[in-house]
Design a protein around this nucleic acid. Sequence first.
RNA 1: GAUCUCGUAGCUCAGCUGGUAGAGCACAUCACUUUUAAUGAUGGGGUCUUGGGUUCGAAUCCCAACGGGAUCACCA
Length: 505
Amino acid sequence: MHLSEQEIIRREKLQELTQLGIDAYPAALFPITHSSTFIKENYKGPENAADFADVSIAGRIMSVRDMGKANFCVIQDGAGRIQLYIKRDDICTGEDKTLYDIVWKKLLDIGDFIGIKGYVFTTKTGETSIHVKDLTLLSKALRPLPIVKEKDGESFDEVTDPEFRYRQRYADLIVNPGVKDTFIKRTKMMNCIRAYLNDMNALEVETPVLQSIPGGAAARPFITHHNALDMPLYLRIANELYLKRLIVGGFDFVYEFSRNFRNEGMDRTHNPEFTILEFYVAYKDYFWMMETTENLLEQVAIATNGQTKLTVGEKEIEFKAPYKRISIYDAILEHTGIDVSNMNEDEIRTTCNTLHIPTEKSMGRAKMLDEIFGTMCEANYVQPTFIIDYPIEMSPLTKKHRSKPGLVERFELIVNGKELANAYTELNDPIDQRERFEEQTKLMERGDDEAMFIDQDFLRALEYGMPPTSGIGFGIDRLAMLMTNQLSIQDVLFFPQMRAENPNS
RNA sequence: GAUCUCGUAGCUCAGCUGGUAGAGCACAUCACUUUUAAUGAUGGGGUCUUGGGUUCGAAUCCCAACGGGAUCACCA
């Protein structure tokens, strides 16, 4: 193991601490009375100084300004940062100045955790600080932390290298405080959604991640193997079919934050594992779901950002309900000037050629329409927009439209040019469902490697009868990107997938 | 998977048309008892991602591998 000069020095300091009888990794708890942020927000000077005359806090040393027999340092705890004033003769009241001269000045470093006791005061320059009376080492850092300096809100030498930040997220979180805020917002968002659904008497459930038939979506799965059962298993690509089984079983409103796994390409909006919120509600249809969706999103925007109008990249996005609704045919008409609603497969193939959209023989009518929408229309919908009423072939789990032949009752919610949610009036006719699965099998035989497998157990469940139901899947990572104004999915996942680290680096 | 681009100290970055590697912060030693990108002085620290090639000589030019990013394909 190759150590840098600084790492060697820190290990030597650790030995010296041990020789002084100081445990660099003590087991006992350290009693904490306040957080850094609480002190800074509540200390008012002489008028309430008595309340802060004896505080005890702990955190990581982030910077040190040494003045000789006194110095200032900044520590960071879970809430934020606060400045400490450490004076030699205050932490070493007797003749022995070892604690200050040796332990504090020589043996402690930026990155170490310390616990301190002292009183709060305001410095000459007006910064709320803690005058330290007692100091304890709580944990020694052996690896030097990247140093980010700051003045007037401007950062210097900020660690921006994405590889460093994603591989060593722990270090990224320490030195880039904004990163923590992003993830706190993500959790607030999840909490808001849970509260919203729970208020509607929804039940949060858990369904299998290991599935023998990967259903509910069109995607390439990860395959694994169970040794004792000696059978292949797939990591789930969606939980839809399991939640519907629960609706059959008599739950009227279930939801799950489903970690899904898809063995496909990665880019700034795709990670191999990602989270989708799905919920299913009995006796509802997709109109009800559109209203619920726009109301939920409005609440989420307020819970995470305090307002419904958000800045995402260069754009302003207004999440206040209601949202525009437009059929996929009208969307295509609007952006291409071509009415495809009555075209057959050959005519649509010709249209694709006209629009310079490549097609393959395996692509059916619906797939080509999806391509036209994806390339010509989708990116234009920046404000939340429901695209509704899709052709039946591309929606094998969706109920036929109540009045428009050839279509299904389905919507996708597009925000900032990306699909954020996908919802239907669910297909609950078991005979129709069996036929749709058989259509998928034909597509598979034709070469479509994303077509769905027939799930006989799911059909058996439907045959017991499923109430009319509406369901939705929400891209939680993408929603987090919108709510936190991040352009890459890697910035809303703590540990995004990376290649194995180069052993030479 | 394809194309483009990047990889130099713990961190942020210089390093020109090839001539034995530099700065700031960090680190070490010293000074300084209210500083805040603290300051002043001195010093140490590098397999220039890895492996080949061209050359008298490669961080620099060429090829390949590994890793990151961007674009595309696939998808949410």
